[in-house]
Each structure stands twice: as structure tokens, then as C-alpha cells.
Design a protein around this nucleic acid. Sequence first.
DNA 1: CCATAATGTGTTTAATTTACGCATTAAACT
DNA 2: AGTTTAATGCGTAAATTAAACACATTATGG
Lengths: 246, 246
Amino acid sequence: MLTEQGAKTVKKIKTLQVIQSEVENTNTIALSVDCIIFGFDEAKLKVLLIRSDLKKYAGKWSLLGDLVFPNEDLDGAAYRILKQRTGLSDVFLEQVNTFGTVNRHPAGRVVTVAYCSLINIQHHKLNILDNELHWHDVKNVTDLAFDHQEIFDKCLQQLQKRVQEHPLGFNLLPQKFSLRDLQNLYEAILDIKMDRRNFRKKFFAMDFLVDLNEMEQNVHHRPGKLYKFDYKKYDKKQKRWVGIYF
Amino acid sequence: MLTEQGAKTVKKIKTLQVIQSEVENTNTIALSVDCIIFGFDEAKLKVLLIRSDLKKYAGKWSLLGDLVFPNEDLDGAAYRILKQRTGLSDVFLEQVNTFGTVNRHPAGRVVTVAYCSLINIQHHKLNILDNELHWHDVKNVTDLAFDHQEIFDKCLQQLQKRVQEHPLGFNLLPQKFSLRDLQNLYEAILDIKMDRRNFRKKFFAMDFLVDLNEMEQNVHHRPGKLYKFDYKKYDKKQKRWVGIYF
DNA sequence: CCATAATGTGTTTAATTTACGCATTAAACT
DNA sequence: AGTTTAATGCGTAAATTAAACACATTATGG
């Protein structure tokens, strides 16, 4: 908690800023948000990056981010920034972690809150306002600007964990999908191979897939059945995990 | 990422502060850290709270927190604040989540990063510099000051999850402990009852417990064997979870 | 029409979790 | 001192879940 004394310190620091901010800008803390947007295409997991326009990191790629406004909620800032940079709305953003090393940003002290999302590239058309915005295969993401590699790594790790515990993955698929689509998705995100038949059994046992009695169209092999995910049924289930797993 | 334009905004905002901070302090963002310290005593999970000294929240309890210094890492701030308020060092703090609703703090815009820890109350003597600092049974924690109830709830939830995936719990026990101690711990944190014999089997199967060939002393029942946790062996194991569990 | 490759549907086996049974040991009580 | 009580320690059987693998079916493409 912030004590009465602490509350006074807020003012004190700001008073200090009044004096020092004219000289240099290292005596206060700016707050930013970075959005890590994962997408799925060609059976590969991708991430949305933008080319850094800071000279120090010329040519390097970086995450989508910007400063939080003083009168704006943290979550609100994340949605605004995503919308501004990509045109994307109607996307669920989840806070992952906050990065606050003193010298992480060359422009001064900037603490950043990382938000992560998972979208269907086909179904969310990007408004590419900035033509330096590109989807990158997550396997080829290295050497990002700032500490963005660290942020990216953490988000990917978190994504891999989340996708095993919650049905996030369905955001990456079209409304109607085949079991092969679903398996490709999990294999791409988790970077593993799974047994097709056991995978199938697993999902049918969960009983959240609805058979649409439709088949795939225009595929170069025997068409598979199409399914959709039953979110209502899932929300009701609410099974609690208890045990010790390490 | 923070663009070149964004970097300029950092300065712009600070210039604004120069003007406005003299009038009111709502036009910049202050950053604080809150420490949620969990402990274990009398087979109950406890949390360290301090009485709020803000008039608005007179009589309510709140978390340990304070502002982050401009030249201090986020993690560093958490350790410093914990040390200052409790005398505790040599404690592992883990970041849980950042809370940034605009009006969460009456003193102005304060975004706070929550850090969580788990300690053995017996083995970490508190330097109670502030006599309004107390251990509370987590079951009786309600109606905290600010948005601290929300922060606390999130941390407890995270703790319950973490303790099932990592051997954090051993921090709460003495070096030498009985299986009953261990089970009490898990039952308290997870708020469930477990079968004594299966619990035992589970842990022996993991093979991280070292039999010390000693017995409990001064207990009012048949003494149990004492064990310690083999962290080295655990670190080597590094088993990766893959699968779908929802 | 045949080879190919993917889908759809099992079965069998192993591993893990769950639910108990029961002897042993020490403390507390009569 | 013997008996009751309550906890520890060890073990087994059933149920559930996960892993490994066999094979028929269906569409594509030559």
C-alpha cells in the first residue's frame, strides 16, 4: 500500500520533476504498453512485429507499443494502441508481465506492461497503416530491439502454457474447422508432434466440439468433417485442477 | 515498442507536468509496488497486512507497498520495500500482475505492480518496525483498502496454481519436516482435503524427498519420520508438460 | 483403375489416480 | 500396567487416463 507518507512522496517526486525535467528526463517513470499479437497461418505460429524507427536499433524488429496516457486504464491503453497501429479491435488482450529494468529503453526510464493476444490472421484484416508492419514466423524471431526479445520469449512461453489450460486456440481457427486444423494449431504452438488418433479421442472426450455435419471444401485430399467449439458448454464445466504436478 | 515519436511524447508529457503538477498531481503516472507475503502458521495460510493510514481507508487493512524510485529496477524496488517494512531479506519475490485502473488510488494516478512471496514465519523473524503490521488468516481477509482485495485475490489464486506446479511450498516448512507437515501445507494453501496415503505415495514417487532417519520430537502422538527436499535432484528433472488439460 | 494419402474407428497395453484395509507405534487415560 | 485412541507406515485392488498401434474408408491424381 501507499502510505500517507508515500502519498506525499508522489507530490515530492513531482516537485522534483518540475526542477529536473527541464534538464534531463531520467527522474520520473514513464509507462508504456507492448502488444504481442500471435497469429496462425500456413500451419505456422506467427507474431506481428514492426521495424524499429529508433536510430539505435535501426533495422531491428520490435513489438507494437506506446505510452499509456495519464487518464487511461492500463487495459484501455493496450486496446487503444493495438487499434491505432493495426486497426484491430474485438480482440482479447491478456496482461502477461511488466518489465522495468532501469536502462531498458534509451529514451529514458520506461516501464512497460506486456499484453498478449492470439488472433486468426484470416478473420482479422489488418489495417496496415504502417507498411513496416509484418507477420513473422515465431521460429525466426531473434535479436529484437530493446529488451523485446526477452518480452517476446516470456509471452510465447505464457502462450504455450495458456493454450494447454484454456481453449484459446480456437481463436486462431475459422468458425468451422477440421480436426486436422485443430491439431496443426496445437502442434505449431507447442512445437511438438501428437498422435492423430489420440488427439482426436482427447477432444471428443472433452465433449466441446459440435459436429456440423459438413465437410471440408476444396482440399487436396479426402475432406474431413467440420466442427465448431461450444463455448457455452465449456463455460459451464468449470472443472477445478487440484493435485501436485512437478 | 516506443517509437521516435513516442520518445518525444515522453518529454512532452513531462513538460506538461511542469505546468500541471503545481496545480494537481493527476497528469502523470506514478509507479508503486505491492508485496503480498504469504506465510504459514498453525496449519493455516496467512498473509502479512498493514493498517492503512489514509483517512479515506481508516481502520482497513492493506498490502505492503510504496513508490518505485526512478533509478531503481522494478524487482529491486520490491525487495527494498519488503526489507524496509519488515526487515525481511533472502526471500524470493515473484511478479504476479500489474494493476492500473485510473482511479484505483485516491492520491492520484498510481499504477502498481504486485509481487508475491511465500515464507516460513518461524524462520524469517519480522523486524516489526511498524506495530500495525500483522499476520492475517487468509480466510478472514475481506474488504481491504484501495483495490487491494482484488490484488490479494489474484495473488492467492496465482499462489494456488504455482504451488501445484513448483515445489514452492517447501519454503513454508522447516528444513526438516514430516509428511503430515507437508500435507497440512498443501491442504491449507489449496483449501482441500487429501487422502493421506495417496499423498504419501505421490511424493515418494516423485523421489525428491530425502529420508533423514530422524523422528519428530515433542509431538503429542506417534512421531513421524523427518524428510528434506532435494532441490538439486528437482532442478535436474526439468520435466516438460505437454498436453491439453481443460 | 490403381496407387497414394488422408480421414475415421477401433483395440490393446501401460501408467496413473483413486479408494480403501490393516498392522504398528506412541500418547493419554483409567 | 493395561487399554483406548489416534496417528504413522505400508500395501492392494479397482477405476480412470494416457500411449501405442492396426486397419478399413474415402477422396485425389495420375
